[in-house]
Design a protein around this nucleic acid. Sequence first.
DNA 1: GCGTAACGACTACATCCGTGATCGTTGAGG
DNA 2: CCTCAACGATCACGGATGTAGTCGTTACGC
Lengths: 122, 122
Amino acid sequence: MAERISEAEQAVMETLWNEAPLTAQEVADRVAPDRGWSLNTVKTLLGRLLAKEAVAHEEDGRRYLYRPRLEREAFAHGESRRLVDRLFGGRVSPLVAHLAERDELSDQDIAEIEALLKALRS
Amino acid sequence: MAERISEAEQAVMETLWNEAPLTAQEVADRVAPDRGWSLNTVKTLLGRLLAKEAVAHEEDGRRYLYRPRLEREAFAHGESRRLVDRLFGGRVSPLVAHLAERDELSDQDIAEIEALLKALRS
DNA sequence: GCGTAACGACTACATCCGTGATCGTTGAGG
DNA sequence: CCTCAACGATCACGGATGTAGTCGTTACGC
């Protein structure tokens, strides 16, 4: 477990996080507008995700229904940690400081984060 | 430009961000303790970074001196944006919210971020 | 019943990445 | 001078990734 999920694979996961269970065909339909993949490509990706135990499938007659096994929360967490570790010495505040310096924070962001932190502290 | 820098390549960049210019040999020496790469491996990575225009080299007699061309700031920025875009719909506050929920923020982090934001707002 | 369309399984193949070995040249020490 | 060690350049190679084609089976429409 804990295999890395590639970017293409993530697109498939997003679809399943949105709606599950789905057949391979349905995943392909949902993903097509953005990526324009063939059905075969989607099936390959689903197969790889199965091997990585990131999705599960159950039989539904002649075909499979896929559903996520890895939760979006856990995935987002892993990826965030990796970034913070690789670039900011494992500390979160330098990341926020960085984004702040780059003017990547809207007033709304600032307000939201402040509210969050206030809640945390109490 | 704007080619993706792989993880191994980043290790080389870190070395050059710390100290430059350096010869391939010197980079290998600095990187060896952590990764244990052969000199050849380091040369290959430097070559790929050259092709990606992430480093520059100038001749120094029979060998080259390498120095970063891509700045660490810019790299960190790109990677951070990619993460925020891919996982949090391009907004920073959900990322912070996520880390907060996961108890990834120390009291010190919270204090630092609050100070940062206060400075930003005024 | 029979053809065919839909499925999953397997195969393919170019590119990138991690890791390194080999080759050709050349400067420096004896 | 001649050898050899240091360099850069080029090639290698297995695994991951992006993208898709082919093969064998089977349920359903006519």
